[in-house]
Design a protein around this nucleic acid. Structure first.
Length: 426
RNA sequence: GGAGAGGUGGCAGAGUGGUUGAAUGCACCUGAUUCGAAAUCAGACGUACCUUCGCGGGUACCGGGGGUUCGAAUCCCUCCCUCUCCGCCA
């Protein structure tokens, strides 16, 4: 969530930023509401603190009197403290209520877009940051979409997934399974080479962790839950990995902290189904390698670029046509200050598929999870957090299969061959 | 799952109702000493929020939540977690 201090001191920038997210005047009223609630919270705290200080002072005095054996005087003081207590109790409740109210309001406010983020309402308003200028793959007239290729070569099976679990849980098999594992290994190796520490996190997280990265309360419906144990299946490795540093104060010299993790990701995707989500385009469980960085505020945008370059390098090695989009204010995620999306061309479907999203969250996440660093002067500051998919498998597989189909079989890109152990799926 | 022990500052570890945000040791930081370092000595050394231009001041926090009390790290309830033993098990 946004920092109260920033909303207060840098109000104009925040309001302008929210306008970029197409916030109406009506919605912007929340900001004023936040400021008003905060004013009340502060005056209530002052009042409460003063009363508590007085009560504390008297309690100590009673202690002294008791020690000196002056029981009568002590008794007299006790009644006064009892009165104070009545007042503090009421104030405490009021204060707690205001804090809760304030938090609830703050939770409704998305991150403020970076100044370089373009205005816009829909995905059509995203800016192409890097277009694909080379040739597109040319397929024969009888080219198949990946779901048909999967059947033809027995790579994965959706019906079987339905039998075992339900729609959107594909079963990979044979070379399809091997391809999956090869991609995971490839992406992990690339991330490790780029200096990211590999993490294998839990796939179930508790409530605090889900709140830390903003899944709660905003995106509760997106996650599968294990209600009985109060746990959530992770929708992305970002959740457990970033939370490793929740409530930590790290040394400035340790920045940036670079972590990567491969995990399956579970998403309910409630109500998001339709004709365009066939096959691997959208599934409830998919594999993803995530890269996460915790960075100094001064360097985070440079770091964002380096993460974008990393993802671009992966796609280049996989020989997939891709483009990079700079998301407009209206299409950006709730917690992000700036996001680049990567899309690969899926030749048989004749459409771009989103395979990666690389974002700088600035202090939006770190504020919520109290992830801080001690700067050169010994002052404590919130760190910036960034993350990106590098990469999400399902759609990569879709594009890989479609783009590389030949009459002889499906060609495996060179960079991947040492991982698959085969050059052709036939 | 059963029985027992325990959760205190970066770490170790005192503290069982009264000025304890918390002894002591270690680590870290600053200064002195030194050509420099080690050793030694002196000092500083939690976080959040409120308040102040600033110095500073205030409040809360000793696993989480609730309670008893004028006063709780200390007593009570409850939840979570860790350790030991037993059971079960990849």
């Amino acid at each position: 969530m946004l920092q109260l201090k920033v909303i207060r001191d840098d109000n104009k920038r925040i309001v302008n930023g929210l306008r970029k997210r197409n916030w109406s005047a009506q919605q912007l009223k929340v900001i004023q509401q936040i400021l008003d609630t905060d004013d009340r919270r502060r005056s209530t705290q002052k009042e409460l603190d003063d009363l508590l200080a007085e009560a504390k002072r008297l309690a100590n005095q009673i202690g002294q009197l008791m020690g000196q054996g002056k029981k009568d005087e002590a008794e007299a003081l006790k009644t006064r403290v009892a009165q104070l207590k009545e007042q503090t109790k009421a104030l405490e409740e009021q204060f707690g209520g205001l804090k809760k109210q304030l938090d609830d309001l703050l939770y409704t406010v998305p991150n403020c877009p970076h100044k370089s983020v373009p205005k816009g309402k829909t995905p059509d308003d995203n800016k192409v940051a890097k277009a694909w200028t080379k040739a597109m793959p040319e397929l024969p007239a009888d080219a198949l979409p990946h779901w048909d290729l999967a059947k033809k070569y027995k790579l994965f099976d959706f019906e079987l997934g339905v039998k075992l679990t339900g729609a959107g849980f594909p079963v990979y098999r044979g070379k399809g399974a091997k391809l999956q594992r090869a991609l995971i290994q490839f992406f992990l190796d690339e991330a490790i080479t780029a200096g990211f520490e590999e993490i294998i996190p839990p796939l179930l997280v508790n409530e605090d962790t889900a709140r830390g990265t903003g899944q709660l309360p905003d995106k509760e419906a997106q996650m599968y839950t294990c209600e009985r144990d109060g746990l959530y299946l992770i929708p992305t490795a970002e959740v457990p990995v970033t939370n490793i540093l929740r409530d930590e104060i790290v040394a400035e010299k340790d920045l940036p902290i670079k972590m990567t993790a491969y995990t399956p990701c579970f998403r309910r995707e409630a109500g998001a189904w339709g004709a365009h989500v066939r096959g691997l385009n959208r599934v409830h469980q998919f594999d993803k390698i995530e890269i996460v960085q915790v960075e100094h505020p001064d360097r985070s945008y440079k770091t964002l670029q380096s993460m974008v370059s990393h993802v671009a390098r992966l796609l280049a090695k996989l020989e997939l046509p891709y483009r990079v989009l700079l998301l407009c204010g209206g299409d950006m995620g709730f917690a992000s200050a700036k996001t680049f999306d990567f899309e690969v061309w899926s030749a048989a479907q004749q459409r771009w598929l989103e395979v990666s999203s690389v974002s700088n969250f600035e202090t939006f996440q770190s504020n919520r999870m109290q992830l801080r660093f001690r700067d050169a002067e010994g002052k404590i500051q919130l760190a910036h957090t960034l993350n990106g998919s590098a990469l999400a498998l399902a759609r990569i597989v879709a594009a890989l299969l479609e783009n590389n189909q030949t009459p002889e079989g499906i060609r495996i890109p060179k960079a991947l061959q040492k991982y698959t152990g085969f050059k052709l799926i036939d």
